[in-house]
Simulated assay, not measured.
Amino acid sequence: MSYAAKNEVEKSIIGRRSIKAFKTDPVDVEELIELLNVAKWAPNHKLTEPWRFQLYTSNGKEQFVQAYIDSQPKTDGEVPERVNRKADYFRNIPLHLVVIMPEDPRQRRWDEDYGAVSTMIQNFQLAAWKRGIGMIWRSNDWIYDPVFREGIGVKPGEKVVATLMIGYPKHIPEPQDRTDIRELLTIIDN
C-alpha cells in the first residue's frame, strides 16, 4: 500500500532516493557547508553535536581512494581488477564526505550519539535532495579496516558512521515498495 504525501516535508521524505550514478559536474563546497549547517539542527541529547566531517574533493579524493585500495586484499601482491574498477568509480564521484563520531564507552551515550549522527545525516540528505544534489550513504566493511581508517586519519576511539558519496544524479532510481507499517505495528490499548 502506498502513501500519498500531504505536505512538502512528506514529499521530500518519500521522494528522496539513494544515488549511485553521478554526473561529473562539481558540487560547490560552500553549498555543501550550508547544507551541513542546516542538517546540524538534528535532535541530539544535551546538544553534544557528536560529529565531525572529512570532505574529499578534487585531488583530495585520491587519499580516500588510496585508503580504500590499500585496505583491500591483494591477489599475488596485485590489486584485483574489481578493486581498481571500484577505485575508478570513486574517483569519478564529485565529493566524498566521511562522517565520524566519538565512541563513548558508556553505552547510553554511544546510542544517543549514533542516533543523533544518523538523524543529522538524514537531514543532510533531505536538504541536499531539495537542491538537486544526490548521495548514497555507504557503510561498507572496509570502513572498519584499520588500514582504511589510518589512511584517512580516523583516530582510535572514533567510529566512521558513513561515507557519503555526493554529486548531481545521472540517474534517479524508481521507488521501491516498502512494507506497510500496519504489518509491523503492534498497538497496545489497555
Rank of each mutant, 00 (worst) to 15 (best):
M1G: 14
S2A: 12
A4F: 12
A5R: 01
A5T: 06
K6P: 04
K6F: 04
E8N: 14
E8W: 04
V9H: 07
E10S: 06
K11D: 10
K11H: 13
S12Q: 10
S12M: 12
I14A: 14
G15V: 08
G15M: 09
R16D: 08
R16A: 05
K20P: 07
K20C: 11
A21T: 10
K23T: 11
T24I: 08
D25Y: 10
P26Q: 02
E30I: 04
E30V: 03
I33Q: 05
I33K: 14
N37C: 09
A39Y: 13
A39N: 04
P43M: 03
K46S: 14
T48I: 12
T48R: 15
T48N: 04
P50W: 13
P50L: 11
W51D: 04
R52E: 06
R52A: 07
F53C: 09
F53N: 12
L55T: 07
Y56P: 02
T57S: 15
N59T: 11
K61W: 03
E62H: 01
Y68D: 00
I69Y: 08
I69H: 07
S71L: 05
Q72W: 01
Q72A: 05
P73E: 11
K74C: 03
T75S: 12
T75W: 04
D76N: 15
D76Y: 13
G77A: 06
E78N: 11
E78M: 14
V79C: 02
P80C: 06
P80Y: 00
P80E: 00
E81Q: 15
V83C: 03
N84E: 14
K86N: 08
K86P: 02
A87S: 02
F90K: 03
F90D: 05
N92P: 07
H96N: 07
V98A: 06
V99G: 01
M101I: 00
P102M: 08
E103Y: 10
P105R: 09
R106Y: 14
R108P: 03
R108T: 08
R108H: 12
R108L: 04
R109N: 08
D113G: 13
G115V: 02
S118Y: 10
T119N: 11
N123M: 06
F124N: 04
L126F: 02
A128F: 08
R131W: 13
R131T: 11
I133F: 02
R138L: 13
R138V: 11
N140E: 14
D141L: 08
W142F: 15
W142C: 05
I143V: 15
Y144N: 13
D145W: 10
D145C: 03
F148N: 00
R149P: 01
R149E: 00
G151I: 05
G151L: 01
V154M: 05
K155D: 00
P156Y: 12
P156M: 07
G157A: 08
E158C: 06
K159R: 15
K159I: 11
V161E: 14
V161I: 14
V161C: 10
L164Y: 08
M165S: 15
M165K: 06
I166K: 09
G167H: 07
P169Y: 01
K170H: 11
D177C: 05
D177Q: 12
R178V: 09
R178P: 08
T179L: 12
T179K: 15
D180W: 04
E183C: 02
L184F: 00
L185Q: 01
L185T: 13
T186D: 02
I188F: 09
D189Y: 10
